[in-house]
Write a protein that binds this DNA or RNA. Structure first.
Length: 486
RNA sequence: GGCGGCUUCGCCAAGUGGACUAAGGCCACGGUUUGCAAAACCGUUAUCCUGGGUUCGAAUCCCAGAGCCGCCUCCA
C-alpha cells in the first residue's frame, strides 16, 4: 500500500516520499485572527487534520506547523489596503494584541471542538519580525528585492519561475489590469515584502528601511524556514490562496535558498452556502460558534469528511441533517457493540469474523492511500457496520475478545484517523452509583411489569415522556436499555 | 479579459480506460423483527450533461457544444 497525494504544483497524483524517510515536515497556512472562525476554516483544518493523523498512523513522525497571522494581511492584495487586524482593532477599540488574543483563543476553541489535533507549533507573525527582516535583507542582497520609499518589494521579473504554481503568466497579470498602479513598484505585479508604516499605523517595527511592518506572504516563508527547514515535505492551504499568496511564498523562499521550497502542495477546496459562494461581502458567513448551536461539532466534522477535500462542499441544513443521521447510524452500531461488551463472556472467538475485519480495514486504508479519499473510507465503515449489526443481532455467541477487537478497529480507523467516533459515548460516562441511573432502573422495571400485563397505554406513556426529555428506551429480547439523545 | 475546475440514482457523494450488471449515506416504497415503537436486517431505484471521435473495451481519454462554479477584490 502506498500513499499518494495530488500535488497542485505538478497537477498529478504522486507517490508520497518525504525528504527524510520517517519524518514529515508539514506547513499549513493558518488563520488571520481578526474574527471568529467560520465553516470554511472548519473544512480546511479538518482536511489537514486528517492528513496529519493519517501520516502519523502510517508511522511518520510529523512536525505540523500552522501559523497565526496577526499582522500584515491587508484588505486587498494590491498592497494598498488596510491591515485587517488593525482595522478591526480600531473598530472594536482594542489593542491589536488584545484583538489577536481574543480571536486566537476562539480559533483554538472551535478547532478543539472539531477534534482537530493542535499543531506542534503555532508561530505568530509578530513574534518573528527579526526572521522576516533577515529574509528581506537576504533577498535584497541577492538582487531579488529592491527598496522604494521605505518599503521593500520583490522584483517578480528576477524570479523566472514566478507563476509555476498558479499557471499565471506575467504578461497576463498585467493585462488583467485589476492591480492598482503603485508608483513605488517597478512592475505592477511586484509584491510587498516590507511596508513603510504611515504615522497613524500603530503596528510598526524598526527595520533597516525605517519603521514598518512585514508583508503578508513573508511570514510563511520565514517561519516555515525557521521551524521546518528550507524544503518542506507538505505545504497545505486553501485553494483561493494559490495566487498570489503561495506563488509569492515560492518566489521568496526559492530566491533566498536556491532550493526547491515544497515537495507536495496540497490545496483544499472551498465551502459554499446553499449553493452560493461564502464571502464577507455576501454576508452569508456562518461562524462555527453559530453552527455548533445547531449541530454537534462531530456532525460537522463528519459532514466535511463525506466529501473529498479537493471538492467543494455545499453547506445546507438538509445536507447537515442527512449527515447527522448517517453519523448516528454509525454511532448506534458502536454503542450497541460496547453495550454488549459490558456483559460479554470470555471464550473462543468467532474466527470467521476476523476475515471480514481485515477486509474492511484494507478497503478503508486503500481509500485513504488514494489522496485521502475520506468518502471512500467512510463507506468502508458503513459496510463494516452492516456486518457488525448482523453479527450483534444474530443469536450467535460472541466472545468478549472478538467484541473488543471490533471496537479496537473502530477506534483505530474511525477514532484515531478520522476522529469521528468518540472514545466514550454519553451513556458510557453514566456513573452506576448515579441517582439518575437508579431512578431509570426503577422506571424501566416498572414499565416492564406493565408490559408483562400488556398495559401498553401506560408503558408507552412512560416511553413517550422519557423521549420528550431526551431519553430513548430500547426494548431488546434480553432486557431494556436507555440512553440520552440530547 | 486571463487561469482553473465541475456536470454520476429524488438529494448528497465515491469511482478517472476492463472485476461498473457504478461504492456509501439521506429520502421513499415493500418485507423481516417488535405488543407497538426505536434500532437493525433484506429488497426495490442510475449506463454516468449533449453530440462526435479514439479503443477489442470509456462514466473514465480526445474534440465540439450546453449549463454551473472558483481564482485573478474581501475570504480557509
Amino acid at each position: 500500500m502506498t500513499l499518494k497525494f495530488y500535488n497542485s504544483l505538478t497537477k498529478k497524483k504522486e507517490v508520497f516520499a518525504p525528504v527524510h524517510e520517517d519524518h514529515v515536515n508539514m506547513y499549513v497556512c493558518g488563520p488571520t485572527v481578526y474574527d471568529h472562525p467560520h465553516i470554511g476554516h472548519a473544512k480546511s483544518y479538518v482536511s489537514f487534520d486528517v492528513i496529519v493523523r493519517y501520516l502519523r498512523y502510517l508511522g511518520y513522525k510529523v512536525r505540523y506547523v500552522q501559523n497565526i497571522t496577526d499582522v500584515g494581511h491587508l484588505t486587498d492584495n494590491a498592497d494598498t489596503g488596510e491591515d485587517k487586524i488593525l482595522k478591526r482593532a480600531q473598530r472594536e477599540r482594542l489593542e491589536p494584541a488584545e484583538l489577536v488574543e481574543i480571536y486566537t483563543r476562539s480559533y483554538f476553541e472551535d478547532m478543539d471542538a472539531l477534534n482537530n489535533v493542535r499543531p506542534d507549533i503555532s508561530p505568530r507573525a509578530t513574534a518573528h519580525i527579526p526572521e522576516q527582516i533577515e529574509l528581506v535583507e537576504r533577498l535584497i542582497e541577492k538582487g531579488y528585492a529592491y527598496v522604494s520609499n521605505g518599503s521593500v518589494y520583490f522584483d517578480v521579473n528576477k524570479f523566472k519561475e514566478y507563476g509555476k504554481l498558479s499557471g499565471r503568466k506575467q504578461e497576463e497579470l498585467e493585462a488583467g489590469a485589476r492591480i492598482e498602479i503603485n508608483p513605488e513598484k517597478r512592475n505592477p505585479s511586484d509584491f510587498a515584502l516590507w511596508k513603510k508604516a504611515e504615522p497613524a499605523h500603530i503596528m510598526r517595527w524598526k527595520s533597516p528601511w525605517g519603521e514598518g511592518f512585514p508583508g503578508w506572504h513573508l511570514e510563511c516563508s520565514a517561519m516555515s524556514m525557521k521551524y521546518l527547514g528550507q524544503t518542506l515535505d507538505i505545504h497545505g492551504g486553501g485553494l483561493e490562496n494559490t495566487f498570489p499568496h503561495h506563488e509569492c511564498e515560492i518566489a521568496q523562499s526559492e530566491a533566498a535558498n536556491d532550493l526547491s521550497f515544497v515537495r507536495y502542495w496540497i490545496h483544499n477546496n472551498m465551502v459554499t452556502v446553499n449553493g452560493q459562494k461564502m464571502g464577507k461581502s455576501l454576508g452569508n458567513f456562518i461562524t462555527l460558534k453559530d453552527a455548533f448551536k445547531k449541530y454537534h461539532p462531530l456532525t460537522i466534522r463528519f459532514f466535511i469528511l463525506t466529501t473529498h477535500y479537493r471538492s467543494p462542499l455545499d453547506f445546507s441544513d438538509e445536507a447537515l441533517d442527512a449527515a447527522n443521521k448517517g453519523l448516528e447510524r454509525l454511532h448506534n452500531t458502536i454503542q450497541n457493540l460496547r453495550e454488549r461488551l459490558g456483559h460479554a463472556k470470555e471464550g473462543s472467538s468467532s474466527g470467521g469474523f476476523y476475515e471480514k475485519l481485515d477486509h474492511y480495514k484494507k478497503t478503508f486504508l486503500e481509500a485513504m492511500d488514494e489522496d485521502i479519499n475520506t468518502p471512500g473510507a467512510i463507506a468502508a465503515l458503513f459496510d463494516l457496520s452492516k456486518e457488525v449489526n448482523t453479527l450483534l443481532n444474530s443469536s450467535q455467541e460472541i466472545s468478549k475478545q472478538c467484541l473488543e477487537d471490533i471496537d479496537n478497529l473502530y477506534q483505530e480507523l474511525g477514532g484515531n484517523i478520522l476522529a469521528i467516533i468518540p472514545k466514550t459515548f454519553e451513556f458510557e460516562k453514566t456513573d452506576t452509583s448515579n441517582i439518575l441511573t437508579s431512578v431509570m432502573q426503577v422506571l424501566i422495571d416498572t414499565r416492564n411489569e406493565l408490559r408483562k400485563e400488556k398495559q401498553w397505554q401506560l408503558s408507552d406513556f412512560i416511553r413517550n415522556k422519557l423521549s420528550e426529555i431526551g431519553i430513548a428506551l430500547d426494548d431488546k429480547s434480553d432486557g431494556t436499555t436507555w440512553k440520552k439523545t440530547k
